[in-house]
Design a protein around this nucleic acid. Structure first.
Lengths: 206, 206
DNA sequence: AATAAATGGTAATATACATTACCGTTTTTT
DNA sequence: AAAAAACGGTAATGTATATTACCATTTATT
């Protein structure tokens, strides 16, 4: 880079975002411990001092990254229509999201580093998975009020449903032993899981 | 340590096991990247050269550890009696095993380091979870032959059952956001999961 | 215009750690 | 008894990298 000096007013946040984007890409590729700050600075066309003055440290940069990521995980969950179709549509969307390579990788890194950064894991969970769980819990409560779902603690139902969706395949994904599932595989899996789940908690069988 | 020199014949394997035991404890506590070989040697009352001559490198030591651990994961699964009682008993044992702090931690480390050691994750999975899955698959196939379970791919059933058992709580455990469940919690959860699962795949309802 | 703020680039600092080398010692082997 | 094997202990080597410091430069602020 040739140009330097204090940046123009219009591009105040540009370099910060560029650092975050670059850091995300590189963290996903190399993990936390195997990525040097120098590599981030070089790829982001930014000096080391800029990163340190904006994020304080490597851990600080990683934290800012997690916080920005989590916000994107609160997808839309339109739970309308019959439980079968609504849950199937939700299941598909959910599986797409949690099996995407970036999300899998970010989870893996977070799991591996969670002892070192307990707060980050908390923030990640509360902004992502927890909201999904709460949304689903409310859905089940509403369906119970209409008599379509048996009266079991809706939070337990939501919990159980989500864990059903993940399958063994998700475990293998996290261990890096399996490729990202195709759309067809996801669709088949969602259908299977929803059917099994509903047979167990539908108050009335047609 | 004062004593040194070539060890007596009786204690040939003692130092090796001592290194492995010590390394396991320390890896579980500090993870892979944050543990120095020197710390292992010191705690195991062994010189650095002994570790390197026996395991070659840090990665080699870690690999030997995983291999030894995996062997302990192939617990006994006596699936006798009715599906309800058999699955509930199995579920309890399974949950106990996968939620134990050591196993959770080992999984976390493996997940975090899997990009660096793809082979280790494979070995871990094939010697532990995979065997459990196969065992369960055979069980479901047998129950199907006796007409107690609906005719669905038994491998899918086993997969779905195991993922039902893990619950959201397991995800939180892996992120370090929850404590190890008590025996009562495990029992309640196993019962709930088995009931939900059987309502969906029992060919006949009493 | 003068000062302050924020940057790029390079280099220096400091540390941590995997790995290797060397020395003296104890036991096995022959 | 002599040679070899395997050990403990310490130190050396080499590398990687997080972090800080310094200088010239560009823009904002007053």
């Amino acid at each position: 880079m040739i140009k330097c000096g204090r940046p123009a007013k219009g591009s105040e946040l540009l370099s910060r975002d560029r650092v975050l984007d670059t850091a995300l890409t590189l963290f996903l590729e190399h993990g936390y411990g195997n990525l040097s700050m120098e590599a981030i600075a070089k790829d982001a066309r930014v000096s080391l001092r800029t990163i340190y003055s904006q994020f304080g440290s490597k851990a600080g940069l990683f934290g800012a990254l997690i916080r920005r990521c989590s916000d994107q995980f609160v997808g839309t969950l339109s739970l309308q229509g019959s439980p079968e179709t609504a849950l199937a549509a939700f299941a598909k969307e959910f599986l797409f999201r949690i099996t995407s390579p970036d999300v899998v990788r970010m989870r893996s890194i977070l799991i591996g580093e969670s002892p070192r950064f307990p707060d980050l894991a908390t923030q990640f969970y509360e902004q992502g998975p927890k909201r999904t769980l709460e949304h689903l819990t409310q859905y089940f409560a509403r369906q119970q009020a209409e008599g379509r779902i048996i009266p079991v603690d809706p939070h337990v139902l939501a919990d159980q449903f989500l864990s059903c969706l993940r399958s063994e395949r998700f475990q293998k994904l996290q261990l890096g032993l399996e490729n990202t599932p195709t759309e067809a595989e996801i669709e088949a899996w969602a259908k299977q899981a929803v059917r099994l789940f509903l047979y167990g908690c539908a108050a009335e069988r047609k």
